[in-house]
């Protein structure tokens, strides 16, 4: 039962001309590179802006963010700029002496020090030379981890830690990569969704969808990966969630637990593979947006 669908590309719909720019949602300003933000010399120049002809000009496309006298532009499409306390999902790219290099979608590779992770079994001691030799047994190239940002260096590189049982190596599941600016900052980024799967919404735009673990096995410290087959119903939920998240991203909707759950519920009337089609995505996201607006009241 093969399925092949070929179609003509659909042109993106242009927004109505003459729509006043800067009167976006909630009074927030949208700017394009080169747009003048303000001519008032009293403002301070922040990220994503520069001074040109005594005017403050945007250097990236995004939303203007004012904090007192400081004006920044938050770009829609950007790499991840680390902040202490962020939760990230990353992939190990290199094993070095006493540390791992982790790809987290930031400009520079992040590091995870051997000393800033829990040893398997939860032992607390100084790391010895043997531990250094066994580093590849803990995490090897290609492995995915969830971690927290411990420090940000002056060049913007990020140092991670996994000193909690929440963090550590990720087992079976699906990774979705989105723009970091679409992940909403929240109290918690680990969600067990009511639909039967869990997600980790990394602040760096890496989203991990995985089957909700049955019981939290604490003694392993998150290093033993379960390679048992995931049951089909769980797989269906995970695939649907993946496609829903991609649909939300295609329509530039913020990602957080509520929006994902609403989108999931709106998508239930469609087949999972149909969610890859642009028009179905649009319809599902429209319903989601409607419900989110109703929720806000």
């Amino acid at each position: 039962m093969a399925g092949v669908e070929v179609r003509l590309p659909a042109a993106r719909e242009r927004l109505a001309q003459g729509l006043p720019r800067g009167a976006g949602e909630g009074g927030r300003d949208l700017v394009a590179p080169g747009d003048t933000i303000t001519t008032d010399p009293g403002y301070m120049r922040g990220h994503g802006t520069y001074m040109g002809n005594e005017k403050l000009v945007a250097s990236v496309a995004g939303v203007v963010d004012r904090v007192n006298k400081l004006v920044c532009v938050k770009a829609l499409k950007t790499r991840y700029n680390g902040e202490v306390g962020d939760i990230v999902v990353g992939r190990i790219t290199e094993v070095q002496q006493k540390r791992w290099k982790v790809e987290t979608n930031s400009r520079l590779d992040s590091v995870l020090l051997l000393s800033s992770m829990n040893l398997p079994g939860g032992e607390l001691r100084r790391r010895s030379a043997e531990d250094e030799l066994a580093m590849r047994d803990y995490l090897q190239e290609g492995d995915l981890i969830s971690a927290e940002v411990q420090a940000v260096f002056s060049d913007g590189a990020v140092s991670l830690h996994t000193r909690s049982l929440k963090y550590g190596k990720l087992a079976q599941g699906v990774l979705v990569q989105v723009s970091p600016s679409l992940v909403k900052r929240q109290k918690t980024h680990f969600h067990d969704l009511p639909c039967g799967a869990s997600v980790i919404l990394g602040n760096n735009g890496f989203i991990w969808i995985y089957p909700t673990p049955g019981q939290k096995d604490e003694e392993a410290g998150g290093f033993v990966t379960n390679l048992e087959p995931v049951p089909l119903p769980d797989r269906e939920v995970i695939s649907r969630l993946r496609n829903c998240i991609l649909a939300l991203v295609a329509q530039k909707l913020m990602l957080y637990d509520t929006s994902i759950v609403y989108c999931y519920e709106a998508s239930l009337s469609h087949q999972i593979k149909d969610l890859l089609k642009a028009e179905v995505m649009e319809e599902v996201v429209l319903q989601t947006r409607q419900r989110l607006l109703e929720l806000e009241g």
Binding site: M1, A2, G3, V4, R91, G142, D143, L144, L170, A171, Q172, G173, V174, L175, T225, L227, P229, V230, L232, R235, E236, I238, S239, R240, R242, N243, Q271, I272, K273, L275, L276
Partner: peptide, 25 residues
Amino acid sequence: SEAEKVYIMHGVQEDLRVDGRGCED
């Protein structure tokens, strides 16, 4: 990672790929 590969392989076995497609879609 190994676990991701295992996940994809089991999915193919069950005719449900990561993006929800079947094996011949």
